[in-house]
């Protein structure tokens, strides 16, 4: 829609100023080496530091670990009150990297299509997103370029690109994005597209880890494997702890639980994160488990990211290459290594 130019300081001050008006989440240092998307205050120091991907991706602000579906109350007169708990509060998520933006874009598809999910959609509709382009690989784990998420832009109300000049190109893609800029007085930028091309050209030629296969061919390659020793190879050390699911920008499977209040007549039904790597994920009443072995669960996870959901939704791999699952795995099982081996195995 419109492009503007700003200095880094102007952008950082502007994001701080937004926090005086709205709930603003921004990647904030956590401990010595990690970052988290945290609600910031107007006086907080906002810095676009070169950071490792946050512990959990920003999309988890839209699918919280525990979320109330509805509340219930049995009244004394025998009536039952049920009230849905939809969160429509406005928030801004700023500093979203392209991989995480792609994660949000994919999550939009998962929750919009089929039976629409009111909880996700209400939150998403009331969330403004300010994206931030990557110019150098944030860790040696990433493979965003290999799965086509490095240049993902769709879904951001505003997108910021650091230019070689030190300035920031501010692209407003929605009316809401323009609205967020109303307190600023940034000069319009007429040659935004050319400057963006320049910023992309200045990136390292090999950006993070790469696959020896086209992104379009990945689904077909993964589809060829069912009974393969590679699944066992990549689960020998697995504790089935589900960390890979919890930190994934495209994992959204959930469990549903009831909570009864101490008065025993009221409570809530909530959904909580679940993970397909956890042993009981596919177990039914009576004890039969449809995926009893870790290797079968790993196969399901990889196929869901690279075969099943890509085929169903038609937007390429449902892995954005952020490297979180491999980095945070206790025993260093990396989905990149698995897919890499599948590609290599298919050649022999």
């Amino acid at each position: 829609m419109s492009d503007f130019l700003a200095s880094l300081t102007q952008v950082q001050q502007w994001i701080s100023s937004l926090a005086a008006r709205y709930t603003v989440f921004f990647p904030t240092p956590h401990g010595e080496a990690n970052y988290r998307f945290t609600a910031i205050g107007a006086d907080d120091d906002v810095r676009f530091a070169p950071y490792r991907p946050t512990i959990t991706p920003p999309v988890k602000l839209l699918v919280p670990a525990r979320e109330e579906l509805f509340r219930f109350q049995h009244k004394e007169d025998g009536d039952l009150l049920l009230s849905p708990s939809v969160d429509s509060s406005f928030r801004v998520i700023a500093g979203v990297r392209p991989c995480d933006l792609k994660g949000i874009f994919l999550m939009d598809l998962f929750f919009e299509r089929g039976v629409a999910d009111p909880y996700y959609l209400a939150r998403r509709e009331n969330t403004a997103i300010i994206g931030y382009a990557c110019t150098t690989p944030c860790t040696d784990r990433v493979f965003c370029a290999a799965v086509d998420s490095l240049d993902h832009r769709q879904g951001a109300d505003l997108f910021l690109t650091p230019l070689a000049s030190g300035e920031i190109l501010v692209e407003a893609n929605t009316e809401r994005g323009i609205g967020l800029l109303d307190s600023t007085d940034l000069p319009p930028c007429e040659d935004g597209p050319a400057r963006k091309i320049g910023a992309i050209a200045a990136r390292p030629e090999t950006y993070g880890r790469s696959f020896d296969a086209d992104v379009q061919s990945l689904s077909g390659i993964v589809e060829q494997y069912w009974d393969s020793p590679l699944w066992d190879k990549h689960t020998e050390r697995c504790f089935s702890c589900g960390t890979c699911n919890l930190v994934c920008p495209t994992c959204y499977c959930f469990d549903v639980r009831d909570n009864l209040a101490l008065d025993t007549v009221s409570g809530s039904r909530t959904r909580t994160w679940d993970g397909c790597m956890l042993p009981g994920f596919a177990q039914v009443a009576g004890g039969h488990n449809f995926r009893p072995q870790p290797a079968g669960r790993q196969r399901h996870r990889v196929k869901r990211k690279f075969e099943y959901l890509p085929t169903k939704y038609g937007h390429g791999p449902v892995c954005v290459g952020c490297g979180r699952c491999g980095r945070q795995c206790t025993v260093d099982i990396d989905i990149y290594d698995i897919v890499h081996d599948l590609i290599e195995g298919g050649k022999s």
Partner: peptide, 24 residues
């Protein structure tokens, strides 16, 4: 067929068998 199900509307992921959702 029988599978674990938590939502019935094709979202919770438990009933997936390969690319199909048992609930839908």
């Amino acid at each position: 067929l029988e599978r674990r199900m938590k939502c019935g509307v094709g979202k919770c992921g438990h009933c997936q068998m390969n690319h199909l959702y048992c609930c839908q």
